[in-house]
Design a protein around this nucleic acid. Structure first.
Lengths: 245, 245
DNA sequence: ATTCATTGTGTATATTGGACGCAATAGTAC
DNA sequence: GTACTATTGCGTCCAATATACACAATGAAT
């Protein structure tokens, strides 16, 4: 994409990308007890979700992965498709410089959300934007199109998924404490949880490994550090990780 | 669609429909204690899911609704988008008569599943097919493209949704008995449930109205008839219909 | 050494879920 | 009509789980 000139992109992008189909990514991060989303500042001045288009021979998933890698500098990101947005007027107020461009048509957008380790991300704008940075989930600015609705639905999906898929650790550093994991859950779910019951519940999943290290430096008793244990996780999955019925 | 000639559809359908975007519907029915799906016999001879294309000014949801109404003769059907399929080779072996047609390109397909009352459906083939009929979910024939995978994912989604959304009644007639509802759940979930606990659990939802009538004619004690009560349902939804956390 | 917020672990209670008992009932057999 | 049988409606008991809460241990600050 870097080698494509903007003019070419507008005029002949449809030779590379499928028309009418786009991908939008809601990239979640967690920093200073706040849930964040990564947004781009569109050259028109407004903010929007990082997204992209699907190459003619590329899978939609891969398109999302490519967008993610380009915006964050990371790979192997936790990614999940959650909904496809297809209202004909979802891009109300669309303003594309080149009126005749293929980009100036109606688009169906496939929504993905991603969970990333905040501190590792190196935000990079794309060729259509001038800035890329984190926003507090409660303070996102006005966004183009239906992107606010997409974020809303992504958060709802994440909350639902959290019930039966303990994926929250993807938002934390490799080693983390139970209090840190709890703050994360509380922030995502927007409610406070009992410290002791939370710990019991998480440990009952048997997908974390407790290290001998502790997080020192805090003003009080040093909590243990934990690490996600993929082997334990896969074993737990096979046993059926607590689901309905 | 009926007024469109097949030749026009292949040659100029892209003036009406978005290229590269399709909708596939997994229509579930329930009959004689069997879960059924409605399939079409493609003119090439193979079977496939009922589906369609999205008009330029039409929402994707509406496209699914249109397909549903055309294939079943019903409206106000319970419908849910569950996944979008976007692998570039998902239509391996595609054989479109007109090789140059827009239909002969790659398609992204948005998957919906529908729950319908079996006895009310009047199956209708579309212009690309010669036959439309129900198939037992366990006996579906070879299907084109990735349609078998789509059915599989639809069933998984239905099973998941059933945990927190008691939508099963959509598959039954207006009045039904608890044993009938239980057979339905057992069929969808593919496991047997305790009769008494099932009844307790369903009635605890407080979304059904028990009628004074009973289902007579059976060889034994006549069970009560129940009916879905939308007002109760919406009240229950507001109270939070049993979810995690 | 004392203080204090925080952590690790445990218990007591309430709620839910699953296994099962039993009387009532609608048809069948005689 | 009477006895029989499979099914239904309603209930109880026990285990599993979830929730509320108690208390000692810890580590930095004073």
């Amino acid at each position: 994409m870097e080698t494509i000139h903007l003019k070419d992109f507008y005029q002949r992008g449809d030779q590379v990308f499928l028309p009418h189909v786009s991908v939008d990514c809601v990239i979640f991060g967690f920093h200073e007890n706040q849930l964040k989303v990564l947004l781009l500042k569109w050259k028109g001045g407004q903010w929007c979700l990082p997204g992209g288009f699907v190459k003619h021979e590329e899978s939609v998933d891969d398109s999302a992965v490519r967008t993610l890698e380009e915006r964050t500098g990371l790979d192997h990101i936790y990614l999940r498709q959650f909904y496809t947005f297809g209202h004909p007027n979802r891009e109300k107020g669309k303003k594309i410089p080149d009126a005749r461009s293929w980009v100036n048509k109606r688009f169906i957008s496939i929504g993905y959300y991603a969970l990333v380790e905040f501190s590792k991300v190196n935000p990079q704008p794309d060729i259509l934007s001038t800035e890329c940075r984190w926003w507090d989930i409660n303070k996102v600015p006005a966004l183009i199109y239906d992107h606010k609705e997409i974020i809303k639905k992504a958060l709802e999906s994440l909350r639902m998924d959290l019930n039966d898929h303990p994926v929250g650790y993807n938002l934390l550093q490799e080693k983390f404490t139970m209090p840190e994991l709890q703050r994360l859950y509380e922030t995502i779910l927007d409610e406070s949880l009992d410290r002791r019951n939370f710990q019991k519940r998480m440990l009952a999943l048997e997908i974390f490994e407790r290290l001998k290290e502790r997080r020192t430096g805090g003003a009080h008793k040093a909590p243990y550090l934990y690490r996600f244990d993929k082997k334990k996780y896969e074993r737990a999955l096979k046993q059926g990780l607590k689901q309905g019925w």
